[in-house]
Design a protein around this nucleic acid. Sequence first.
DNA 1: GCATTGTAAACTGTTAACAAATGCATGCAG
DNA 2: CTGCATGCATTTGTTAACAGTTTACAATGC
Lengths: 221, 221
Amino acid sequence: MSIKSLQRTTLRDQCLNGLRSAITSGQLPAGHHLVETELSEAFGVSRGTLREAMRRLEQEGLLVAGPRGQLRVREINEGEIGHLYQVRAALEVLAARSLCQHADFPDRLETLRECLARLHAVEGNLGEQIEADLSFHRTLCELSGNSVLLSSWLALEGPVRVTIMHAGIERALNNMSSSRHDHLLEVLSQRDPAHIERVLVEHMDEAAQRLMQAMETQSAG
Amino acid sequence: MSIKSLQRTTLRDQCLNGLRSAITSGQLPAGHHLVETELSEAFGVSRGTLREAMRRLEQEGLLVAGPRGQLRVREINEGEIGHLYQVRAALEVLAARSLCQHADFPDRLETLRECLARLHAVEGNLGEQIEADLSFHRTLCELSGNSVLLSSWLALEGPVRVTIMHAGIERALNNMSSSRHDHLLEVLSQRDPAHIERVLVEHMDEAAQRLMQAMETQSAG
DNA sequence: GCATTGTAAACTGTTAACAAATGCATGCAG
DNA sequence: CTGCATGCATTTGTTAACAGTTTACAATGC
């Protein structure tokens, strides 16, 4: 019999995860004012516990503080989308570069191939496709072996998810086609840093462009 | 008579700043266990207020949580120093690239020149030199106009400061000579992205190497 | 009507107290 | 002396309550 080390989960962390998924799933729309008393009651915890969770989300960039400390769900404007994806590109290029330098490059590439397979498998399922896409890119950062790089990327994941929700899932999905990622992995497997950089930057630029266009047509309609 | 809108400062933010400077100044050594009751008493605030500040420092990467939620000042090992400076390099390269694309490039360069002048002015003063060095690089990110880039860089600033303190101020100062930054700015002024990238990456690699050596000799001695 | 002043409701900032868990020390039995 | 159990001290998790501020709205006076 296998004894799983059972994890003690604090209420604070449960609030954190609950709130995060509520925000990144669009359940709490951008700009929405989070009232502590409402939320603490909804989660069934005290305000103090909830506030600690909110402080973290604030720093994660999912919440922004108003004049009197009121926290609202962050709104992402077009300019920030561009910035966001430029930084993502820079980080993932570094990840890819680092990956190339590892002795067991082929093994690590194999892990990425599995992520890609999953992306293929869930094609069409809205929610799953987002997860698989982000998972692919997150795995790239993990495989780099650079822990600082990974945590920097993770700090971007929240805002990225908010952007996707804000721009509309259907539109965002265009960025997550498995074919685009097939290309990415193919280039990656050539282990040519300069080439990878070019393609990755292009990949991110395209993604940002589409998301920005989605938001334009949204506000226009 | 002029009435200035007076700024309200919360105890939480004061704790945050106080704790952060205590850590980054080395007053609280790496690995030190922070006891909530001690600190709250020292600051003269309640535990709840202090805890909110600590949650932010935790996410800033200045504190790490132990098994039972005990928070300790983060210890940075050699490997992480390398990772840290690789990510810094990637971000600052992006900043420099963005800078080059701005129409008012010369104006922004001038701001950087002022930062450099300050670095020259405080040469020899330990504490001031660290501030001036970080200020130079931070300004580079600000001038990029990319807010996401800036906040990613700021998330790295804490750990960088801890590293500097951990490696020893005197050793770290070798990285902050004004001459090295003279060179950086000179290359920057040529507005050649590829060249800048090469020099910036080299700049960061050297810095990381020295800090890592400093830690080696430290642990050996 | 319009401006000003009370007034109440809604929230956040902050605190103090209670509960649970962990680690340590004391003391006892073998 | 070893091993173990018990109780105590320490520390974090969590809660409820209090205090101060802002906002909206009604009341008052001109």
